[in-house]
Design a protein around this nucleic acid. Structure first.
Lengths: 332, 332
DNA sequence: TAAATGTGTGTAAACGTTTACACATGGAAA
DNA sequence: TTTCCATGTGTAAACGTTTACACACATTTA
């Protein structure tokens, strides 16, 4: 059996209420009482029971983080940032992997509620929006993806603009048949597709179609193979995430296609290999840490003051132009 | 206020004990009572309060996972596997990032105890072993790294053998001045260094020293620059992790060193870029998912039966020989 | 027929906190 | 002197569960 506040009270010669007050630093406490309690705490090595605290307070000092895929470096960087902020505020982080599956996502949301987390950080799939009644949930902040019109704290990058710029880079790089590979389930994908399409204004004939699949490496590979098969004219590809890009790049390499001449390439996120391969790959670098940090801070504020005005933070992606997106003149 | 078992009892017209029994599926329950309770649960949308459960049971349905770095793909793959196993057993996962810092690690261990987690999964830094009295902790299972002699459930790969084989590959690839880059704080590093050294039996003069630093990308880069500076004769490098390798590879590339002729290269883990770069990189692939899964299963069993016999599982790393480790004859 | 066993349900205590309330003391203001 | 407020401490209830114990009734066993 572990120690309780009772043991401390016994040793310090006071009531449990007094011990609690000393620990919480609230109310009036006599100087020598405080001393005796602190002494007892130290001597016994007492540590408060967070579960009991949580029950009493009706909410825990834990925040929930629901990710679509923790193996996606973009999300692992986010979770790292979230965790830092949380710890700084005295919270810990319950992480769940939704695997891009709306059913799992809904299930985890339930779980979080049962665990009485103080707040939830979520990067929602598209379908979840209608399925749930969020008014009954703990404070919620969205990151990376958001609901089209819901009033909710969120941190995203300007995906439409980023996709637009990345696409323009390929167009200006001299490619004439550009295909896009996007995620299937997310709000983000939709917005990026819009940016992608918008970039073709005036050169509509250069767009070679939009392809979608769940954002996993194998899917990127499969999709790329399919594109190569179905649309032999394609001479450039834009990928909507590092994972899709990794798979797509694999497929390209297996075909032995030379970049940047035979094939142009650009993607979202900046995986380590993007800088290593030859030619190196043009990317939109997403400020993952900043996103995670901002979202977590937002959530902390919302927890502290649930009536607070809703804020939607939009960050900018950084275009890093490298050798894979310009025909002829290798930049790198 | 959220619903409690009381509300269900009221609606079903029975006592809270009965509701609890129906929910737990324990004890004798009359057919129509069961029906009425289930009906009430559904109608009200009642979900049990896990915090209260945890308090009563003196432990929660949460397991703690303490990682040295969630951004390390090796560890994110592990956490994904752990989470799957946990969920399957009705547990959720509290993830903490120790950042290779023993102090943080100790702090998180404390936190886990306060949260009354049912068990802890840990990849310990070397220094933690003495600092803590593990007898007072919840069930603990170790992965990736273990304590030299402690009796504790653990899952590791045969690091000595893996390092040995990887080093032999470089030696047999024709390199004459081989340096090693290893992590600084872990048990793993020590074992791998042993394997590295053992591989030079008979050709001791080919070993060009062992370098150590915390396992981050920037450190790998720094260390590699240092080696290039201090030991110009070095013609091959072995890196002990993907992160160190990524940094080291960067440094090599910045120097414009051609592989595999001017420089041989091999590393632990199989990051995506290892297959992309030219020549592609020879690696030891660690079965991260298998490690995570096995460790989590071990922990589940330990939770179910604390008196269970201790098991130490050793998996094998898979040597993937590619072009970066053989002089002259490009394999790929 | 009496005792034993099986089935179904309720009462109340316990888990470890926090906190409203009550009470006691001392000094300052009236 | 009385009243009032500030200070310090204790008692007990509450948070939402689980479960030991008690009880009631029905059926089986001797």
């Amino acid at each position: 059996m572990s120690l309780s506040i009772k043991d401390v009270a016994l040793r310090a010669g006071c009531s449990i209420a007094t011990v609690s007050r000393v620990l919480a630093g609230k109310g009036y406490i006599g100087g020598d009482t405080r001393q005796k309690v602190e002494e007892a705490v130290k001597a016994l090595g007492y540590r408060p029971n967070r579960v009991a605290r949580s029950l009493r307070a009706a909410k825990s000092r834990v925040i929930g983080l629901i990710l679509s895929d923790i193996c996606n470096p973009f999300f692992s960087e986010i979770s790292r940032a979230v965790e830092h902020v949380a710890i700084r505020h005295g919270y810990s982080v319950l992480i769940c992997n939704a695997d891009e599956d709306p059913a799992k996502e809904a299930h985890y949301l339930q779980l979080m509620e049962e665990e009485k987390v103080a707040g939830i950080l979520l990067s929602p799939t598209r379908s979840i929006a209608k399925a749930l009644d969020f008014s009954k949930f703990p404070p919620l902040a969205l990151f990376d993806r958001k609901f089209p019109k819901a009033q909710m704290d969120s941190v995203v990058i300007d995906n439409e603009d980023a996709a637009f710029r990345l696409t323009r880079t390929l167009i200006e790089g001299g490619y004439r048949n550009i295909a896009g590979v996007f995620g299937a389930k997310s709000y983000t994908a939709g917005v990026r597709i819009a940016g992608f399409k918008a970039a073709f204004e005036g050169v509509e004939d250069r767009m070679q179609g939009v392809h979608q699949a769940p954002a996993f490496e194998v899917e990127g590979r499969r999709l790329m193979q399919e594109i190569l098969e179905l649309r032999p004219a394609v001479d450039a590809v834009l990928c909507s995430s590092a994972l899709l890009a990794t798979g797509a790049y694999q497929a390209l390499r297996e075909r032995g296609l030379r970049m940047p001449d035979q094939m142009g390439f650009a993607c979202f996120d900046d995986p380590p290999w993007a800088g290593f391969v030859d030619p190196s790959v043009t990317v939109i670098r997403q400020p993952a840490s900043a996103i995670g940090e901002a979202a977590a801070e937002l959530l902390m504020k919302r927890i502290a003051d649930p009536t607070r005005v809703v804020s939607e933070i939009v960050l900018q992606g950084e275009l890093i132009e490298r050798g894979s997106s310009r025909r002829g003149g290798g930049v790198y």
